[in-house]
Design a protein around this nucleic acid. Structure first.
Lengths: 206, 206
DNA sequence: GTCTATAAGAAGATAGAC
DNA sequence: GTCTATCTTCTTATAGAC
């Protein structure tokens, strides 16, 4: 494996566990299987490694955002997906989303690292809010707005519905990030939440 | 002011901004207005300062929990408060709670420090979940259950209702923790959320 | 590109005077 | 209880051989 890439991988793992300030370059080197001074042939400083991780993070994020916009700016592809949305399908989507973000290695480490470093500068604060608040809400709000137009859901403020749909899912995910043992409990609550949300906001036409 | 107490105060401020590993004892001393070696007459190590903060945190938390149980285990005091609960009063309560936790200096710093350090050991993970997930949900679930019994709210799963009420409020608070400039926007959303929640779950008897 | 040796400085903590 | 001086260790980073 490419050493330069592996350094980022190991560093991200360590940063997501301990935070930047509690990780020493020697530990990163050890994880890669080289000595600390060798790191400096690939990156010019510890900060440079951190920045490279952020760059990769932003790149993936922009890619993801672009993908979503392509499929979702007018909610064409998704409109097909959710044309016959049922409670069970909503549950499946909710659990699928939850499980992906909870178990995908990169997503998980990025999220934990950002969580730890979110107050260390303005840029990171904004990145965090973009990724875990504004973008998911924008996307889900659009989707819900579409479902309302289709008469699948009650006429109501889609932005707030998105908040009420997303916030519990996100909160349950943070519980699992801290206490993985509670995953089953959280999944049960997640399913109940989605079903209740679906029932509460279900259009009157069915 | 008591130096021993002031050390904790300054340390908490710094830890909540940068995290334990990125704060140096010299910085704490500077904030207190003494030199670093003098700290060691009050605490035997940097870790000892951190532990003292945690002890204080736990003490306050236990006190708070005890208070809530005294008033809230059978929801007597609160039942009086919410006997004639209206949408406006629910909004007032939501915004009051939100503003208190957002602006109370101790609450705010404790929360940020715990956010940064939540993955550093199991005890902190549990403390975080207790404070910002399990306890609020337990309390609000009890309250909502009471309101349901009174016919003020629809018959439904009170635990999930509590999750759907609390999670958006908590999420909006984390946005403000990161980006204080967004407080007005978050307050607007908070109010809309509470009103919509109240409307959605309002009992059919009125 | 990786290593050993090492510089340079920072950071936590102690000793002992006042 | 606070200070200056100092110790020790850790940590980042560089130099230069292979």
């Amino acid at each position: 494996m490419d050493t330069k890439k592996k350094i980022l991988d190991v560093a991200l793992t360590l940063f997501s566990e301990k935070g930047y300030g509690n990780v020493y370059v020697g530990q990163i080197a050890e994880g890669v299987g080289i000595k600390a001074p060798s790191l400096y042939k690939h990156y010019k400083s510890k900060q440079d490694i951190f920045n490279a991780i952020l760059d990769e993070m932003r790149e993936r994020y922009n890619q993801k955002a672009a993908d979503l916009n392509m499929n979702g700016s007018d909610y064409l592809a998704d409109s097909e997906l959710y044309k016959n949305v049922s409670e069970d399908e909503l549950v499946k989507m909710g659990i699928g989303l939850f499980s992906f973000f909870l178990h995908d290695e990169y997503e998980c480490k990025f999220r934990k690292m950002l969580t730890i470093e979110q107050f260390s500068d303005r840029e990171l604060s904004k990145l965090f809010s973009d990724q875990y608040f504004d973008e998911p809400l924008k996307y889900q709000s659009g989707l819900l707005h579409f479902l309302i137009m289709q008469g699948k859901m009650k006429e109501d403020d889609a932005d707030i519905m998105a908040l009420q749909f997303f916030a519990p899912i996100y909160l349950l995910m943070t519980v699992c990030d801290r206490q993985p043992k509670r995953e089953k409990e959280c999944l049960r609550k997640l399913e109940k939440h989605v079903r209740q949300f679906s029932r509460i906001y279900k259009g009157d036409d069915k």
